[in-house]
Structure formats: C-alpha cells, structure tokens
C-alpha cells in the first residue's frame, strides 16, 4: 500500500474543505431556494398569494407544454453542435499554433479575441454579417456568384442553426485551442520521434499518436464546454432571442423567458431544476466514459 493511500482520508478532506465550504456557503441557499420555488406557483404578476402546488410545474412542462420537448431537443443541438464545432476548429488551430511559425505568441494571443469580445459588439457585428438585406456574408457570396439571392441566415429554420452554431463555435473555440495547446505540451518529443522512425507522418501521426494522447484533455475540456454552453444563453439571446418563433429557444433561454419575461418564477425554477438534472445525467455519463477510457 502506498504512502499516499495510507494518509489519504484526513488530508484529502483538509484539502477539500475550503472548496466545499465556499460552495456550500454560497450555493446551498440559492439551490435550495430554487428547488423550493419550483414547487410553488410564485408569479410576480397579479397573484396575491403564493401556494405550494406540488409537481404541477413539472407536469406542466412534461405533459402540457408542447414546446418543452422541442426546446429540449434544441438544447441538445445547441450544446453538442457548439462543442463539436469548437473542437473541429479548436484542435487544428492548436496543432498549427504548436508548430514552429513566425510570431507564434502574437497569433496565440489574437486567437483569443472572439473569447474576450464583449457580447454587445459581438451581436452588432454578427447580425451585420448575417443580415438578409445588407449582410456582409450575402454580399461576399453574391460577389463570388455563389448565391443569386440574399439568404436570410437568421430567419430561416434551415440556416438559423448552422449560423448560430458557427457564431458559437467562433466565440468558444479559443478555449478548446488553449486547452489542447496545453495538452500538447504534455506529449513528450520522444513519442513522436519513435513514431517517425516507424514511418508515421502527417495525418497518421496525428490520428494514431497525438489524438490518443490528447484524449484526457479533450474529454475534460469537452465536459467544461458542455456545461458552460448549457447554461449560457446570451449569444442566442442577442442574435435571435430564441426565434424565429421558438426555433432556437433552448432550456437556458426558456428559463429566462419564463422567469423574467412572463415572471412565472415557479415555472422558471422547475425548468431550471429539470435542466440541471438533464445536464447532470449527461455529465455523469460523460465522466463514466472518461474513466473507462483512462483506465
């Protein structure tokens, strides 16, 4: 039995204590309050008394509200689409930024711009790019004769998701790039040398050596990206407010709408609880996969 294992319990708790104290101190009340609210009919508009209504709010979404399931599906598309696109962009970018190139530090810095650009200006610029009347994207596509008529990127159910996911990938991929870049530093040069001796090059080197070694990084940053995208809604909100219709509503925007547009705090709270449960299941599943692969 190793030294660490013998010492483990007491020390582990000591190390964990501050973190747990922080989270319990600051998150317990909001969490409990949220769960409590989800069983009430609290509405800020025009209702005098607040009553406990049991599972009524949950039943409303699961059984009555026709939109709930499509919104749940949208959330899945939004989250996994965003994360997938972020990886598709982020990994190759990290590989290039890890190579010997001129002014590498500068490029590594500039890649962060989407990540730090304030949402207000992000929305101004991207709406300008996507607009169906004077949009920059349409302009270029028409200049190069790729389309003959303007496409209403954000107003068409077929194009609105790709457009949103593109924006989301743009805003989020710097994080993946950074994580992968950090992960690449952990791969020892000798591994590559050995593989090169065996004749592996280019894509095969990446596929058989780099990618497997990056797996832990990818899993962890994937989880973080999933959780972050799940609860964030600002980007969708400023670009489409969940529209056209409810096409791009996700659980996060729907929670927001229920609590702060309709002021049905009870319903909003129930949605938040359900949203949490779903993402919890997703995360646990994910962690299981992570563990299996790393054993």
């Amino acid at each position: 039995m190793s030294l660490l294992k013998r010492l483990s319990h007491r020390v582990a708790y000591l190390f964990l204590l501050p973190t747990l104290a922080y989270l319990i101190g600051f998150q317990t009340y909001p969490l409990v309050e949220n769960i409590r609210l989800s069983f009430t009919n609290l509405s800020l508009i025009g209702r005098e008394s607040v009553e406990y209504v049991g599972w009524e709010n949950y039943r409303h979404f699961l059984a009555v509200d026709k939109q709930f399931w499509s919104i749940l599906w949208n959330t899945v598309v939004w989250v996994f689409g965003s994360v997938l696109f972020q990886f598709v962009l982020g990994i190759p970018t990290a590989l290039v930024l890890n190579m010997r190139i001129r002014a590498r530090g500068l490029w590594r810095g500039l890649i962060l711009i989407p990540w730090v650009m304030p949402v207000v200006v992000v929305s101004i610029v991207w709406k300008w790019i996507f607009d169906g009347q004077w949009g920059i994207l349409n302009f270029f596509l028409r200049e190069f004769h790729l389309i003959s008529r303007n496409v209403i990127w954000l107003g068409n159910p077929q194009t609105v998701w790709p457009s949103l996911l593109l924006t989301s990938a743009w805003k989020g991929f710097p994080y993946i790039t950074l994580m992968v870049l950090a992960g690449l530093q952990g791969i020892e040069k000798e591994v590559y040398e050995a593989a090169k001796v065996d004749g592996a090059t280019g894509f095969r080197l990446f596929w058989h050596i780099t990618l497997p070694l990056l797996q832990p990084t990818i899993f962890v940053s994937g989880l973080v990206a999933i959780v972050t995208t799940w609860t964030k809604f600002e980007l969708i909100w400023v670009l489409t407010e969940g529209g056209p219709g409810n096409t791009t509503s996700t659980l996060a925007t729907y929670i927001y709408t229920n609590s702060f547009v309709f002021y049905d705090m009870g319903k909003g709270a129930a949605l938040a609880v359900m949203s949490t449960l779903v993402v919890l299941i997703v995360s646990l599943f994910y962690v299981k996969m992570l563990r299996r692969s790393s054993v």
Binding site: L23, I255, M265, A272, S275, V279, L280, L284
Partner: peptide, 18 residues
C-alpha cells in the same frame, strides 16, 4: 464530485433573487 457538477449547473436567472 456530483455535488460539484450540481452546484456548477445552478446558474442563471433563478439564483439572482437569492
């Protein structure tokens, strides 16, 4: 570990009043 994920999830409009 589960508590960690859970407390991470509870973000957004509903925790504003508390």
């Amino acid at each position: 570990a589960i508590f960690l994920i859970l407390s991470q999830m509870f973000q957004g409009p509903l925790i504003m009043v508390p």
